[in-house]
Design a protein around this nucleic acid. Structure first.
Lengths: 243, 243
DNA sequence: CGATTCCTTGAAGGTTGTCAACGTTGGTGG
DNA sequence: CCACCAACGTTGACAACCTTCAAGGAATCG
């Protein structure tokens, strides 16, 4: 790339600005199963330090769609900063600790600093990329492929942030919630999990995922590019690492 | 919202900056069915003035996924500006005229101007929103719902940009391409279209969509919030209008 | 007018959803 | 500690949805 110093330096600067702002922001802790911003405005920018959360949407027929799953290190509320979202409904999957920047401060101070705004745009861009890849997986893979794509996505995100080093991690989603995320029923999720376990590809029991055969799991989520080589972010010194 | 003047003014400024830059950028015209950037780098920022294009991904088994459809007024290459994308493969669905900003200029000049960078972040945010809603539709609706969501999405985007005023528009996708976009087979798309026509909900023939019963079509794409009231963008004076 | 691509339709089979029931787990209060 | 309850997980039978395979018709373009 041309003149890498300029933009990348700005991005790196923005990243540390945002990190510093979050570092001195008030913390908030929620128990598992709580709604974010139940007391009116959940508008604001949140940095997840510990725990998992998700954004969801309830249909009138009672079904629920889980639109996004947030892991430690993720930033919640990127859209809100630019005033585009009506209201995002967020739900904690585990106990969660997060740093909170109220929306006024986020809009007035953060976005008026150029490097920070650039970095936020970069975060938006990364997230768009992930969503688009997941969309490809959801729309073109069968249930096994979708599940594989999801498990691999969480796996690579956790690994990239150095939150795990083995091929095992804790997945605080019930099978029903996995179904709501992938657009499948609990019953079918259950069957697929059983078959994946029988084939010694991956085991999920008691909210604990163990990848037995990474190669075959990746093959199921074939060509989705679901996890770009974990090097290409770090190559230019940027990452979404939790710390 | 608090102090709406500050951020919104900046965004509006960024919008006109970008519009001006595109306005004085060289134009390029492609025939239908051409690849964008076949001559090496398609890196850059493109503003579609006329025609439709799409981003796609080919699987090794021969299937093709259409990941995004670009309409007149859309900006292609938002991710490339921040250096995140490997390479996006783009394909014209019709003859296309676009304004082209080469990546060097885009990165060095555009992104170093604060209002413009803010506006680009805003565009990213809007696109993320659309992708997420579409993901919900794809993952939770049956074939009828997916098709309804797609047709409504194009409809509202064209209307919002004042490219149509009636409930009719030209859809330059073959049924096979619609299938690639929605993750369904040609055969099934064909059957669904026939049933929608039989029920007097929507007619698609010769690449021309006519919505006969907007209410029932919306009901099929229920609760996907697929088309937010077209007012909420314009309320604060921003839009993605083509002109 | 030939050739290619696109559209259309039928029949059969695989995948996923629905319904219903039962087993298991974990927490709570007696 | 046990009994209970509620949420979660598991399984089978059947129905609905979607794909695959196959073939023929219509449109489009040289």
């Amino acid at each position: 790339m041309n003149r890498p110093s300029s933009l990348l330096d700005q991005l790196a600067l923005g990243q540390s600005n945002l990190k510093a702002t979050f570092g001195s922001a008030p913390r908030r802790t929620l128990k598992a199963g709580e709604l974010l911003g139940a007391a009116g405005s959940n508008q604001g920018l949140y940095h997840v330090r510990m725990g998992w959360a998700c954004q969801f949407h309830d249909f009138t027929d009672g079904r629920r769609s889980i639109r996004e799953v947030y892991l430690p290190g993720d930033v919640i509320g990127l859209n809100a900063v630019l005033g585009t979202r009506p209201v995002e409904k967020i739900f904690t999957l585990t106990a969660v600790t997060m740093e909170v920047i109220p929306v006024e401060h986020a809009v007035l101070k953060l976005m008026s600093d150029h490097p920070t705004a650039l970095y936020i745009a970069w975060l938006l861009s990364k997230r768009q990329q992930r969503t688009a890849q997941f969309l490809t997986a959801i729309s073109h893979f069968d249930a096994r492929g979708r599940l594989a794509a999801m498990l691999l996505d969480f796996y690579t995100r956790l690994r990239r942030r150095k939150l795990i080093s083995e091929s095992t991690y804790n997945l605080p989603l019930t099978q029903a919630e996995i179904g709501n995320y992938l657009g499948l029923t609990v019953v079918h999720i259950n069957r697929i999990l059983r078959s994946l376990r029988a084939e010694q590809i991956v085991v999920l029991e008691k909210h604990c995922v163990t990848i037995l055969d990474l190669e075959r799991l990746t093959a199921l989520a074939q060509d989705g590019e679901v996890h770009t080589a974990s090097t290409d972010n770090c190559a230019h010194g940027l990452s979404e690492a939790a710390d």
